[in-house]
Design a binder for these strands. Structure first.
Lengths: 194, 194
DNA sequence: ACCATTTCTTAATCTACATCAAGTGCCCCG
DNA sequence: CGGGGCACTTGATGTAGATTAAGAAATGGT
């Protein structure tokens, strides 16, 4: 049951009373997405944080030559949003799309702010969530600056073993920052070793 | 006077009473660093968030072939820490070094946590600070995936005009992710245009 | 003021990865 | 159950930026 999943997710960092759980869940809005349907598109203002209860989303940008760059995957039990747009309430730069039929729970920015007021534990929770995202983002930047494509691929396999055999290769290629062609070669071990 | 600088910095997001200011400043620990002195080195556990009141620091990692990658510059009025290590309290991956004689105010992790308890506004402040870092880090990742070195250089010039003519070129080269040699060419406009 | 070190420039060559092109297999939808 | 697109592979060629090497200029410590 989806509400259990999100309550357990919160429980990783904060403990809520029964009443607090009820306040929280009343702020949530469930939504179903079909494969290839968008939760958010480029230029839209991001108004929600989304928590995935089943399926999988991807967040990506499109550069000026039309190439897509996957910024994040969100399988179930993950949060996703275009943080830039959510914070600034300016038109965003991400598309968030369902890679398969997916169910999410939406928490609007205004409800999120109400939670901060009403139950300060939520400010604590989202601070920690954001800190962890920051560390992950910085690590990915370090990897992109200092590792080869193959090393990044190996890291990805170690870190996201579940995603690997469940996602189209081109999505993973885009995430680690190579073309599908080069990715295919790497997997086949056809990149020359030294 | 350094305390004013940090209090104004807080004031960007939260308002403190006089007493709260006093509690806060009592938790701070001033420290002076000489040029080339380290605030933190690889393998050390990061115990402090540092706020720069004068001078400039840089945070960088060294990859396995010995190449340095600058992750952040911290001129005065900026916060810096090895977030990975600060959060996990595991040995860190960053070196934080003074690029010139620098003064910082240190806030220990334990004092920071005390502030969260005693004055919840601080949790709010650091949540926002972390959110902004996250957005900046994500943007930098997007840039590194989708822009050429020259475009990243132009962005850097626009975003940090003050730093540009005040930092050694090789530091900027490292930040945008190119060799000093290539950086020099770019600046000279010697990279062939099309 | 001076020397040593570091920083910056310029040039020749090299390489990881991209691009372009073609072909194969497969999966989804009508 | 058939076919049209999409995902993947493989090969030939192109290129942004790295590496190596060397000299010139700037800088800072004594």
């Amino acid at each position: 049951m989806p509400l259990n999943l999100i309550l357990n997710n919160l429980e990783k960092h904060i403990h809520l009373t029964r009443e607090e759980q009820d306040i929280f869940t009343a702020y949530l809005q469930p939504k179903k997405l079909k494969r290839k349907q968008f939760l958010l598109t480029y230029g839209e203002v991001c108004k929600y944080s989304a928590f995935v209860t089943s399926g999988c989303l991807r967040g990506y940008t499109v550069d000026k030559s039309g190439i897509e760059h996957v910024l994040s995957f969100a399988p179930s039990d993950w949060w996703i949003a275009d943080m830039y747009s959510l914070i600034s309430q300016k038109p965003g730069i991400q598309n968030i799309e369902a890679l398969e039929d997916t169910e999410v729970l939406l928490l609007s920015k205004s409800n999120q702010e109400k939670l901060y007021q009403e139950i300060p534990k939520f400010e604590h929770f989202f601070r920690i969530l954001t800190e962890n995202s920051l560390v992950a983002s910085q690590q990915r930047l370090i990897d992109s600056l200092s590792l080869t494509a193959e090393e990044r691929y190996n890291n990805f396999c170690k870190r996201y073993p579940t995603l690997i055999d469940h996602l189209p290769q081109k999505q993973i290629a885009s995430y680690i920052g190579v073309t599908p062609e080069f990715f295919s070669r790497m997997r086949g071990g056809m990149v020359r070793k030294r």
